[in-house]
């Protein structure tokens, strides 16, 4: 078996397991038919999509497999951030304070997945929208920009999320 086929097999099997796990999560208490249907569709879909699911050049498993406990903790954390930011944004709007601006900073996260989650978190937080990410450069629209300075913007917008995500996908 060449390294090529081996790597393809690894990608196929991991895609298959994730899909099957999601099926079991959807379908509830499994019976024999349900498992058979899930296995069959997971196999077909894994064969069709494993090339996109795991990138050909993906280097480390630690970039993909999250720390499950911290991931669970991240959900209430980001919910809190969303609520806190909504109140601040509402207050800013009532007070008439706005200073929309596009700011730019670099993230220290290495994993693609963590970067995507960071962008989604920034977008979900009211007041900031992640417009673009190019390698580690982030372009963020900030509703009430306190500063155009990139270090300051990173501290205000992303640093605490980044630190959290960096531990989830180290």
């Amino acid at each position: 078996m060449t390294p090529r086929t081996k790597w393809d097999l690894v990608r196929f099997v991991s895609t298959f397991s994730v899909l099957l796990a999601s099926w079991l999560l959807f379908a509830g208490p499994p019976d024999a038919y349900s498992i058979a249907a899930g296995t069959l569709s997971a196999a077909v879909l894994a064969a069709l999509t494993y090339r996109f699911f795991l990138d050909d050049h993906e280097a480390g498993a630690r970039h993909l497999i999250p720390n499950p406990l911290l991931l669970l903790l991240y959900l209430p954390y980001i919910l809190f951030r969303i609520y806190a930011a909504s109140f601040i944004l509402v207050y800013d709007m009532i007070a008439g304070r706005m200073n929309p601006r596009i700011v730019h900073f670099r993230t220290r996260l290495r994993s693609d997945l963590a970067r995507v989650v960071l962008c989604s978190s920034v977008t979900l937080t009211p007041g900031t929208i992640a417009v673009l990410i190019d390698e580690d450069h982030l372009l963020v629209h900030w509703f009430n920009a306190e500063s155009g300075h990139s270090g300051r913007a990173r501290r205000e917008i992303a640093e605490s999320m980044e630190r959290f995500l960096g531990r989830i996908w180290s």
Binding site: T15, L19, S22, A46, V116, L132
Partner: peptide, 20 residues
């Protein structure tokens, strides 16, 4: 953007699975 490309790669299979 890479956000879309990375997320699409991960989500395509899961979405089709959910549809099935």
């Amino acid at each position: 953007t890479e956000i879309l490309v990375t997320a699409t790669g991960l989500l395509t299979g899961l979405l089709v699975m959910f549809g099935v």
